[in-house]
């Protein structure tokens, strides 16, 4: 659990840095939606996150399945997906 929590903080930092967001990483509600409401990200951001994730964690995000909605549902869901798939 502690691993997940620290990874969550790391991914929050990655998102803030990659997207030049004007908030502190710890201000991101881990359960709030990343897109639309909540953080209000859009498709440009999705590509930026995919790029940052591939560089930092060594795997590619994909959009071919239902999982994608789950992965981007919240910071927590994205961090969990990275935890499972990371190679770096």
């Amino acid at each position: 659990m502690t691993t997940t929590l620290s990874l969550e903080a790391e991914v929050a930092g990655l998102i803030v840095e990659a997207l030049h967001l004007e908030i502190a990483p710890e201000a991101i509600d881990p359960e709030a939606p990343l897109f639309g409401e909540g953080l209000g990200l859009d498709s440009i951001d999705a590509l930026e996150i995919a790029l940052a994730v591939s560089k930092r964690y060594g795997f590619q995000l994909r959009s071919d399945d239902e999982r994608n909605h789950r992965i981007f549902r919240s910071l927590r869901a994205l961090a969990a997906h990275i935890e499972t798939n990371r190679t770096g």
Binding site: S43, A46, L47, A50, Q60, L61, R62, S63, D64
Partner: peptide
């Protein structure tokens, strides 16, 4: 036909 968006989708 497929919906293609991320780099890995495009490659596949």
């Amino acid at each position: 036909a497929g919906s293609v968006f991320y780099p890995s989708d495009i490659a596949e």
